[in-house]
């Protein structure tokens, strides 16, 4: 389980949403809420921003809404992982 939201930066929340979705391959809203530890309204706000930035895509299947990480989103996740490693050496979290 990821850390509580009030301690997380926006970038960390984006990273958590994308990581959860990437791990699942394609994820439903309820799954992301559960694994990224976010309330529904906040999640939808962040998801809208991620879609606007082209990091997350959405599609509907059988009445359910699914999310998938785009190639740009995957590159973002990799870059944040590199930044996390870099910053951890100085005792700083993102």
């Amino acid at each position: 389980m990821v850390q509580a939201e009030k301690q997380r930066s926006t970038i960390k929340i984006y990273f958590d949403i994308l990581t959860v979705t990437e791990e699942e391959g394609e994820a439903k809203t309820t799954r992301i809420i559960q694994k990224a530890n976010l309330p529904h309204d906040r999640l939808m706000k962040h998801v809208a921003e991620l879609q606007k930035r082209g990091l997350l895509s959405e599609y509907e299947d059988g009445g359910s809404r699914y999310y998938r990480v785009t190639s740009k989103g995957l590159e973002f996740v990799r870059e944040v992982r590199r930044a996390q490693s870099f910053l951890s050496a100085f005792g700083v979290a993102i």
Partner: peptide
């Protein structure tokens, strides 16, 4: 480069 992604002041 990492500052551009994370916005970290320390960086």
């Amino acid at each position: 480069r990492y500052r551009r992604v994370t916005g970290s002041g320390f960086l």
